Computed example of a mutant assay.
Amino acid sequence: MKILVDVGHPAHVHFFKNVIRNLENKGHEIKITARDKEVTLKLLDAYGFKYECRGKGYTGITGKIRGIFEMDYNLYKTARKFKPDILTGIHNPYVAHVGKLLRKRSITFTDTEHAKLANILTFPFTDLICTPACFRDDLGKKHIKYNGYHELSYLHPNYFKPDPDVLDELHLSKDDKFIVMRFVSWDASHDIGHGGFTIEAKLKAVDELKKYGKLFITSETPLPKELEKYRLNISPEKIHDLLHYAALYIGEGATTATEAAILGTPSIYISSLVNTMGNFDELEKKYGLVYLFTEPEDALNKAKVILTDKNIKNKWGLKREKLLKDKIDVTSFITELIINFKI
Protein backbone atom coordinates (compact mmCIF):
# COMPACT_ATOMS: atom_id res chain seq x y z
CA MET A 1 0.00 0.00 0.00
CA LYS A 2 1.19 3.55 -0.75
CA ILE A 3 0.67 6.09 2.03
CA LEU A 4 1.30 9.85 1.91
CA VAL A 5 2.07 11.43 5.29
CA ASP A 6 2.03 15.22 5.50
CA VAL A 7 3.70 16.96 8.45
CA GLY A 8 3.14 20.62 9.19
CA HIS A 9 4.77 21.05 12.60
CA PRO A 10 7.72 19.57 14.52
CA ALA A 11 5.33 17.65 16.80
CA HIS A 12 3.87 15.93 13.73
CA VAL A 13 7.29 14.48 12.91
CA HIS A 14 7.42 12.92 16.37
CA PHE A 15 3.83 11.69 16.11
CA PHE A 16 4.38 9.85 12.83
CA LYS A 17 8.02 8.76 13.05
CA ASN A 18 7.42 5.39 14.73
CA VAL A 19 4.28 4.78 12.69
CA ILE A 20 6.23 5.37 9.46
CA ARG A 21 8.93 2.94 10.55
CA ASN A 22 6.32 0.32 11.46
CA LEU A 23 4.58 0.70 8.12
CA GLU A 24 7.82 0.50 6.16
CA ASN A 25 8.85 -2.60 8.10
CA LYS A 26 5.55 -4.16 7.05
CA GLY A 27 6.33 -3.48 3.39
CA HIS A 28 4.29 -0.32 2.76
CA GLU A 29 5.63 2.58 0.70
CA ILE A 30 5.62 5.98 2.42
CA LYS A 31 5.87 9.45 0.91
CA ILE A 32 6.53 12.27 3.38
CA THR A 33 5.66 15.87 2.54
CA ALA A 34 6.49 18.64 4.97
CA ARG A 35 5.96 22.28 5.76
CA ASP A 36 9.12 24.24 6.52
CA LYS A 37 8.11 25.38 10.02
CA GLU A 38 10.54 25.85 12.92
CA VAL A 39 12.68 22.68 13.18
CA THR A 40 10.39 20.33 11.22
CA LEU A 41 12.87 19.71 8.41
CA LYS A 42 15.80 19.40 10.82
CA LEU A 43 13.93 16.68 12.70
CA LEU A 44 13.17 14.78 9.51
CA ASP A 45 16.85 14.99 8.59
CA ALA A 46 17.93 13.90 12.07
CA TYR A 47 15.71 10.81 11.88
CA GLY A 48 16.95 9.95 8.39
CA PHE A 49 13.65 10.44 6.57
CA LYS A 50 13.43 11.43 2.92
CA TYR A 51 10.78 14.08 2.29
CA GLU A 52 9.51 16.71 -0.09
CA CYS A 53 9.06 20.26 1.23
CA ARG A 54 5.75 21.86 0.27
CA GLY A 55 6.67 25.40 1.37
CA LYS A 56 6.78 27.58 4.46
CA GLY A 57 3.18 28.62 4.91
CA TYR A 58 1.93 32.06 5.92
CA THR A 59 0.94 33.97 9.02
CA GLY A 60 -2.22 36.00 9.64
CA ILE A 61 -5.71 35.23 8.38
CA THR A 62 -5.16 36.68 4.88
CA GLY A 63 -1.87 34.85 4.50
CA LYS A 64 -3.36 31.58 5.71
CA ILE A 65 -6.23 31.82 3.21
CA ARG A 66 -3.71 32.33 0.41
CA GLY A 67 -1.65 29.47 1.81
CA ILE A 68 -4.54 27.03 1.63
CA PHE A 69 -4.71 27.28 -2.16
CA GLU A 70 -0.92 27.24 -2.58
CA MET A 71 -0.38 24.26 -0.26
CA ASP A 72 -3.32 22.36 -1.77
CA TYR A 73 -1.77 22.84 -5.21
CA ASN A 74 1.73 21.83 -4.11
CA LEU A 75 0.47 18.73 -2.31
CA TYR A 76 -1.81 17.83 -5.21
CA LYS A 77 1.12 17.81 -7.64
CA THR A 78 3.14 15.54 -5.37
CA ALA A 79 0.24 13.21 -4.59
CA ARG A 80 -0.84 12.87 -8.21
CA LYS A 81 2.68 11.71 -9.08
CA PHE A 82 3.01 9.38 -6.06
CA LYS A 83 -0.51 7.92 -6.44
CA PRO A 84 -1.19 7.14 -2.75
CA ASP A 85 -3.86 4.76 -1.54
CA ILE A 86 -4.25 6.73 1.71
CA LEU A 87 -3.27 10.25 2.79
CA THR A 88 -2.91 11.25 6.44
CA GLY A 89 -1.92 14.20 8.62
CA ILE A 90 -2.71 16.04 11.82
CA HIS A 91 -5.56 18.56 11.59
CA ASN A 92 -4.54 18.88 7.98
CA PRO A 93 -6.94 20.47 5.46
CA TYR A 94 -4.51 19.94 2.56
CA VAL A 95 -4.52 16.17 3.01
CA ALA A 96 -8.32 16.16 3.20
CA HIS A 97 -8.73 18.38 0.12
CA VAL A 98 -6.21 16.52 -2.03
CA GLY A 99 -7.60 13.16 -0.97
CA LYS A 100 -11.04 14.26 -2.10
CA LEU A 101 -9.69 15.64 -5.40
CA LEU A 102 -7.87 12.38 -6.14
CA ARG A 103 -10.76 10.25 -4.85
CA LYS A 104 -8.45 8.67 -2.30
CA ARG A 105 -9.16 8.05 1.37
CA SER A 106 -7.75 10.37 4.02
CA ILE A 107 -7.32 10.04 7.79
CA THR A 108 -7.17 13.13 9.99
CA PHE A 109 -5.75 13.05 13.51
CA THR A 110 -6.51 15.89 15.93
CA ASP A 111 -6.63 16.71 19.62
CA THR A 112 -7.44 20.43 19.37
CA GLU A 113 -11.12 21.19 19.91
CA HIS A 114 -10.81 24.97 19.60
CA ALA A 115 -9.21 24.92 16.12
CA LYS A 116 -12.51 25.99 14.58
CA LEU A 117 -11.17 27.25 11.24
CA ALA A 118 -9.10 24.12 10.62
CA ASN A 119 -12.12 22.01 11.61
CA ILE A 120 -14.33 23.73 9.04
CA LEU A 121 -11.68 23.37 6.34
CA THR A 122 -10.83 19.76 7.12
CA PHE A 123 -13.63 17.67 8.60
CA PRO A 124 -16.16 17.80 5.72
CA PHE A 125 -13.53 16.49 3.27
CA THR A 126 -11.73 13.81 5.29
CA ASP A 127 -12.92 10.21 5.52
CA LEU A 128 -11.93 9.46 9.12
CA ILE A 129 -11.28 11.69 12.15
CA CYS A 130 -9.26 10.11 14.94
CA THR A 131 -8.92 11.74 18.38
CA PRO A 132 -8.00 10.84 21.96
CA ALA A 133 -10.90 9.48 24.03
CA CYS A 134 -10.83 12.64 26.19
CA PHE A 135 -11.65 14.82 23.16
CA ARG A 136 -14.67 16.88 24.17
CA ASP A 137 -16.60 16.96 20.90
CA ASP A 138 -18.62 14.30 19.09
CA LEU A 139 -17.76 14.65 15.40
CA GLY A 140 -20.25 12.16 14.06
CA LYS A 141 -20.10 8.83 12.26
CA LYS A 142 -16.58 9.19 10.88
CA HIS A 143 -15.12 10.02 14.30
CA ILE A 144 -13.26 7.34 16.25
CA LYS A 145 -11.50 7.72 19.61
CA TYR A 146 -8.61 5.91 21.24
CA ASN A 147 -7.50 5.75 24.86
CA GLY A 148 -4.31 7.77 24.70
CA TYR A 149 -2.72 11.05 23.65
CA HIS A 150 -0.88 12.14 20.52
CA GLU A 151 2.30 12.47 22.55
CA LEU A 152 2.22 8.83 23.63
CA SER A 153 2.93 7.83 20.02
CA TYR A 154 6.54 8.84 20.65
CA LEU A 155 6.91 9.06 24.45
CA HIS A 156 5.49 5.69 25.43
CA PRO A 157 8.26 3.62 27.08
CA ASN A 158 8.00 1.10 24.23
CA TYR A 159 9.56 3.76 22.00
CA PHE A 160 11.28 6.34 24.19
CA LYS A 161 14.30 5.83 26.43
CA PRO A 162 15.83 9.04 27.82
CA ASP A 163 19.42 9.64 26.77
CA PRO A 164 21.52 11.24 29.55
CA ASP A 165 24.08 12.45 26.97
CA VAL A 166 21.97 15.59 26.57
CA LEU A 167 23.04 16.58 30.08
CA ASP A 168 26.71 16.38 29.14
CA GLU A 169 26.00 18.56 26.12
CA LEU A 170 24.68 21.27 28.44
CA HIS A 171 27.31 20.68 31.15
CA LEU A 172 24.73 19.33 33.57
CA SER A 173 24.62 16.33 35.89
CA LYS A 174 21.62 14.24 36.90
CA ASP A 175 21.69 16.02 40.26
CA ASP A 176 21.45 19.51 38.76
CA LYS A 177 18.10 21.23 39.04
CA PHE A 178 17.03 22.96 35.84
CA ILE A 179 13.86 24.41 34.36
CA VAL A 180 12.63 24.42 30.76
CA MET A 181 10.48 27.33 29.57
CA ARG A 182 8.71 27.75 26.23
CA PHE A 183 7.18 30.77 24.53
CA VAL A 184 5.09 30.45 21.37
CA SER A 185 4.30 32.80 18.49
CA TRP A 186 0.48 32.64 18.75
CA ASP A 187 0.23 32.81 14.96
CA ALA A 188 -1.42 29.41 14.38
CA SER A 189 -4.99 29.80 13.13
CA HIS A 190 -6.36 28.34 16.38
CA ASP A 191 -4.14 30.64 18.51
CA ILE A 192 -5.00 34.00 16.95
CA GLY A 193 -6.49 36.29 19.60
CA HIS A 194 -5.05 34.29 22.48
CA GLY A 195 -1.93 34.72 24.58
CA GLY A 196 0.09 33.85 27.66
CA PHE A 197 3.13 35.80 28.88
CA THR A 198 3.61 39.51 28.26
CA ILE A 199 7.18 40.73 27.80
CA GLU A 200 7.15 42.04 31.37
CA ALA A 201 5.84 38.71 32.69
CA LYS A 202 8.59 36.83 30.83
CA LEU A 203 11.27 39.00 32.39
CA LYS A 204 9.80 38.63 35.88
CA ALA A 205 9.38 34.87 35.57
CA VAL A 206 12.98 34.39 34.47
CA ASP A 207 14.27 36.65 37.23
CA GLU A 208 12.42 34.58 39.84
CA LEU A 209 12.96 31.08 38.43
CA LYS A 210 16.71 31.42 37.92
CA LYS A 211 17.03 31.46 41.71
CA TYR A 212 15.94 27.81 41.82
CA GLY A 213 18.11 26.29 39.11
CA LYS A 214 19.52 26.66 35.63
CA LEU A 215 17.08 27.96 33.07
CA PHE A 216 16.65 26.99 29.42
CA ILE A 217 14.21 28.77 27.10
CA THR A 218 12.81 27.61 23.77
CA SER A 219 10.94 30.25 21.83
CA GLU A 220 9.18 30.51 18.45
CA THR A 221 9.76 34.27 18.50
CA PRO A 222 12.77 36.52 19.19
CA LEU A 223 13.53 36.83 22.88
CA PRO A 224 14.14 40.11 24.71
CA LYS A 225 17.89 40.70 24.64
CA GLU A 226 18.06 40.15 28.41
CA LEU A 227 16.78 36.58 27.94
CA GLU A 228 18.77 35.55 24.89
CA LYS A 229 21.51 34.03 27.04
CA TYR A 230 18.98 31.49 28.34
CA ARG A 231 18.00 30.25 24.87
CA LEU A 232 18.29 26.47 24.60
CA ASN A 233 20.83 25.37 22.03
CA ILE A 234 20.63 21.61 21.45
CA SER A 235 19.69 19.43 18.51
CA PRO A 236 15.88 19.48 18.26
CA GLU A 237 15.52 15.69 18.52
CA LYS A 238 17.00 15.85 22.04
CA ILE A 239 14.30 18.03 23.61
CA HIS A 240 12.41 15.10 25.14
CA ASP A 241 15.56 13.75 26.77
CA LEU A 242 16.00 17.17 28.36
CA LEU A 243 12.37 17.40 29.47
CA HIS A 244 12.65 13.99 31.14
CA TYR A 245 15.47 15.19 33.40
CA ALA A 246 14.05 18.69 34.08
CA ALA A 247 12.76 19.72 37.50
CA LEU A 248 9.96 21.72 35.89
CA TYR A 249 8.44 22.73 32.59
CA ILE A 250 6.60 26.05 32.47
CA GLY A 251 5.36 27.82 29.37
CA GLU A 252 2.85 28.61 26.66
CA GLY A 253 3.53 25.52 24.55
CA ALA A 254 0.60 23.11 24.90
CA THR A 255 2.33 20.17 23.24
CA THR A 256 5.46 20.63 25.35
CA ALA A 257 3.34 20.85 28.49
CA THR A 258 1.72 17.53 27.63
CA GLU A 259 5.07 15.97 26.75
CA ALA A 260 6.60 16.99 30.08
CA ALA A 261 3.61 15.61 32.00
CA ILE A 262 3.76 12.27 30.19
CA LEU A 263 7.50 12.08 30.91
CA GLY A 264 6.87 12.53 34.63
CA THR A 265 8.09 16.12 34.86
CA PRO A 266 5.95 18.69 36.72
CA SER A 267 4.29 20.79 34.05
CA ILE A 268 2.69 24.23 34.10
CA TYR A 269 0.72 25.46 31.08
CA ILE A 270 -0.06 29.18 30.81
CA SER A 271 -2.56 30.32 28.21
CA SER A 272 -5.90 32.02 27.69
CA LEU A 273 -6.87 28.70 26.04
CA VAL A 274 -6.99 26.90 29.39
CA ASN A 275 -10.20 24.86 29.81
CA THR A 276 -10.76 24.40 26.06
CA MET A 277 -9.00 21.04 25.57
CA GLY A 278 -10.00 17.61 26.85
CA ASN A 279 -6.46 16.28 27.14
CA PHE A 280 -5.57 18.96 29.68
CA ASP A 281 -8.78 18.34 31.59
CA GLU A 282 -7.74 14.73 32.02
CA LEU A 283 -4.05 15.36 32.70
CA GLU A 284 -4.95 17.89 35.40
CA LYS A 285 -8.02 16.40 37.06
CA LYS A 286 -7.52 12.64 36.67
CA TYR A 287 -3.74 12.33 36.83
CA GLY A 288 -2.56 15.54 38.52
CA LEU A 289 0.39 15.80 36.13
CA VAL A 290 -0.14 19.36 34.88
CA TYR A 291 -1.24 22.70 36.30
CA LEU A 292 -3.24 25.12 34.15
CA PHE A 293 -3.22 28.90 34.54
CA THR A 294 -4.34 31.93 32.59
CA GLU A 295 -2.28 34.35 34.68
CA PRO A 296 1.54 34.15 34.71
CA GLU A 297 1.68 35.40 38.30
CA ASP A 298 -0.40 32.46 39.53
CA ALA A 299 1.74 30.07 37.52
CA LEU A 300 4.93 31.52 38.96
CA ASN A 301 3.67 31.04 42.51
CA LYS A 302 2.90 27.36 41.77
CA ALA A 303 6.34 26.94 40.18
CA LYS A 304 8.02 28.11 43.37
CA VAL A 305 6.09 25.54 45.40
CA ILE A 306 7.09 22.75 43.02
CA LEU A 307 10.75 23.75 42.96
CA THR A 308 11.03 23.67 46.76
CA ASP A 309 9.64 20.13 47.02
CA LYS A 310 12.64 17.77 47.10
CA ASN A 311 10.47 14.72 46.41
CA ILE A 312 8.48 16.15 43.52
CA LYS A 313 9.99 14.01 40.75
CA ASN A 314 9.24 10.81 42.66
CA LYS A 315 5.64 11.94 43.12
CA TRP A 316 5.30 12.69 39.41
CA GLY A 317 6.89 9.37 38.53
CA LEU A 318 4.13 7.53 40.40
CA LYS A 319 1.46 9.60 38.68
CA ARG A 320 3.06 8.81 35.33
CA GLU A 321 3.00 5.09 36.07
CA LYS A 322 -0.75 5.29 36.70
CA LEU A 323 -1.29 7.07 33.38
CA LEU A 324 0.78 4.53 31.44
CA LYS A 325 -1.17 1.64 32.96
CA ASP A 326 -4.41 3.24 31.78
CA LYS A 327 -3.35 4.08 28.21
CA ILE A 328 -2.76 2.04 25.06
CA ASP A 329 0.27 1.80 22.78
CA VAL A 330 -0.80 4.64 20.48
CA THR A 331 1.80 3.87 17.80
CA SER A 332 0.55 0.30 17.38
CA PHE A 333 -3.04 1.54 17.26
CA ILE A 334 -2.31 4.09 14.53
CA THR A 335 -0.27 1.61 12.50
CA GLU A 336 -3.09 -0.94 12.49
CA LEU A 337 -5.70 1.74 11.85
CA ILE A 338 -3.94 2.83 8.66
CA ILE A 339 -3.27 -0.71 7.47
CA ASN A 340 -6.85 -1.85 8.03
CA PHE A 341 -8.55 1.29 6.73
CA LYS A 342 -10.68 0.34 3.74
CA ILE A 343 -9.35 1.86 0.54
Results as ranks from 00 to 15, higher is better:
F293P: 02
T218N: 12
V5T: 10
I129E: 06
E24F: 01
I144G: 11
F333Q: 02
G55P: 03
L209D: 02
R320F: 06
I270M: 07
H91R: 11
V290M: 05
L318K: 15
K161N: 14
P162A: 05
K177G: 12
N314D: 15
F280W: 04
D207E: 15
N301A: 13
I239Q: 09
N233G: 00
L75Q: 10
E297V: 12
N233S: 14
E113M: 08
R231P: 01
A299L: 07
K56L: 07
V274G: 01
L324F: 04
H171Y: 12
V95C: 06
L152C: 06
V330F: 03
D138A: 08
A303E: 11
H14N: 14
Y291G: 03
Y159K: 00
D85V: 04
K204L: 14
G48W: 05
F109M: 10
L152S: 06
Y212P: 02
K319L: 13
E200D: 14
I268L: 12
S173V: 08
Y76V: 07
K104S: 09
G48Q: 00
T218P: 02
S185N: 09
Y230L: 04
V7A: 04
A188K: 09
A79V: 11
G89Q: 01
F197V: 08
H244Q: 08
D191W: 11
K26P: 00
G288N: 05
A34N: 07
L292D: 02
L324V: 00
K100H: 10
Y146K: 00
K313Q: 06
K56T: 14
L223M: 09
K56D: 08
F160D: 02
V39S: 13
L87W: 00
V98T: 09
T112S: 13
D138K: 14
E29D: 10
L318C: 08
Y94I: 09
S185F: 02
S235P: 05
T78S: 15
T78A: 15
G99D: 03
Y58G: 00
G193W: 02
L227Y: 08
H240K: 12
S153D: 03
A303T: 11
D326N: 09
D329M: 00
D176N: 13
V13Y: 04
D36M: 03
K214Y: 11
T218V: 14
T126C: 15
G60T: 09
L167I: 08
L155I: 04
N279P: 00
D168Y: 15
F280C: 04
K325G: 14
P266Y: 09
F293H: 06
M181W: 10
N233V: 10
K42P: 05
A299G: 15
T218K: 13
K202Y: 08
T294E: 13
Y230A: 07
N279C: 05
K26A: 11
M1W: 05
K204A: 09
K202S: 08
L323A: 05
N311Q: 13
K342D: 14
K214A: 00
L170A: 08
T265M: 02
I270T: 05
T265D: 01
M1L: 10
D175W: 06
N340V: 05
L215P: 01
I343Y: 12
H171D: 14
E220C: 07
R103G: 12
K81E: 15
G67F: 00
N314Y: 00
V7F: 02
I339C: 06
I339F: 00
S106T: 13
F293Q: 04
K238C: 09
I234Y: 01
L152I: 07
D36L: 03
